[in-house]
Simulated assay, not measured.
Amino acid sequence: IEDYQVVRMFLMMVEMRKGMKASPAYLEIGQYFIDPKGNKTVVGLQRTLGYYIDSFAFGSPLEIRNDNDAFNHIADQWVYPRIKVTDTIKRNGFKNSTHHIHPVTLFQQLLTNPKAETLMKANEIELLRYLCSSDQRAEDIKRYWNTIKIANRNGYKVNDSVMWVDYIKMLERCDKNIQSPKYICPANLQEEHDRYVKKLQTIQDKAKRAEDIRKAQEREASFKEQKEKFFGIRINDGEIEVKVLESVEEYRQEAESQHICLFSAAYDQREDSLIFSARIDGKIIETIEVDLKTLKVVQSRGVCNQNTEYHDRIINLINANTHLIKERITA
C-alpha cells in the first residue's frame, strides 16, 4: 500500500457438521505496516483476556494498537504463497519466499540492513535466518562479516549457521586466523567443531588450574598460621596411613584427584576444620574432615564423595587417635 509493505493476518474458521460440506470463513484480525525505513505499526482488532493467544473482540474496529506477543506470534505462522512486495524489497533480493523467517523481521532487515540484502542475494539463507533470529545474532553477523565474505568467495556454503558461528568463535578464542579459508571452510563442520570444543576445554582447564594455583598461593599464609601446629600428624594401622594435609596446594591436588569440593569450597580457610588424607601405598583412599571443637569426624569421602570399603576402618582409626590432635591444640 503506497510505500508501505503490509503483512496481513487472517483468522480462518471452519464450521463442520456430520453430513455437511465444511463451511470456511475468514476474518482479518490485524496488519503490520512497515515503512521504507523499517519502522512498523500495528493495526488490529482489540485484544481480550482469554486462554488462547487469538482472543480478540471480533466486533471491534481495526485500529492502531500497541504491538504485542499475540500479533507477533500470529504473523509468523503460515505464509500465503502469493506475495506482493514493494519495489525496494524486491530490489533487495526478495524472491517470493520468507524461508521460514518471521516476515515482519525479514522485511525490516531487507529495508534497513545491507548485510541482510547481501545474504539474500547470495542465497545464504541459513546465515540470513541467523541474522533475523535475534539482535545478538545480528551483532554476530556484523562482527564476523569479513569472515563470511571470505567463506562465500571461496564457495563455502553454510548449512548450519548456529554451529558454524560457534565454530568461528572457538577459532577466535584459540587464536586461529578467522580470515583464512583453511580454518573457516571446513570440509566436515561437525568434526572440526567437536575437535575445537575439546581443544578449548583443554585451554580452559589449563587456565583454571593456573588460577587455582594462584588462589592457593594467596591463601597459603593464613592457612599456615591456622593449621601449622597440626603438621606432621600421621596415623597408621599397618596398611592405611592417615596424614594431615599441610598446604593449600595439597588441598587443591586432593580435590582434583578425588573430584570433590575440598579446594573450591575453601576448606583450608575453615578455622574449626582439619583435613586428613587416608592413603594406601601413597594412593588416596578417602579424605576426612575432623571438627576441631568436638574432635569428631564430620565426613570421610572417597572419589566423587562415595564411601569406600575402608570407610569404617578409617573413621575408627581417627577416633582412636584424637588425642594426637588434642595435644596439638593444648600445646
Rank of each mutant, 00 (worst) to 15 (best):
I315E: 13
A75L: 05
F71C: 08
T202C: 04
K215I: 15
N316S: 14
R91F: 12
A266K: 10
P186K: 04
D69S: 08
L295W: 02
N72G: 00
E2C: 02
Q108P: 06
I184M: 01
R8W: 13
N188D: 10
K157C: 11
I150W: 02
N92W: 01
Y310R: 10
Y80N: 13
R173G: 11
F33L: 12
Y4T: 15
Q46L: 14
T105W: 04
Q253H: 11
D160Q: 09
V303A: 09
R313P: 05
I318C: 08
Y26K: 08
I34A: 09
N188C: 03
N146M: 03
K37P: 09
I315M: 05
N96S: 14
E126G: 04
N72T: 05
T118H: 11
L11Q: 13
V242I: 14
A278V: 01
N307I: 00
A22I: 00
M20D: 15
S60W: 09
Y80A: 11
Y144E: 03
K169H: 08
E241L: 11
Q226H: 15
I285E: 09
Q299G: 02
V79M: 12
K229E: 13
I141W: 01
G38Y: 06
G44H: 10
V104Q: 06
Q109R: 11
K326M: 09
A151P: 10
E225S: 15
P181Q: 07
Y32S: 09
H323R: 10
L317I: 03
C185K: 03
N319M: 02
S55K: 06
M170V: 02
A57Q: 06
K283W: 00
L110Y: 03
F276W: 06
N92G: 04
D175R: 11
T147M: 02
I284C: 08
K283I: 07
A57H: 07
E256F: 05
E117A: 01
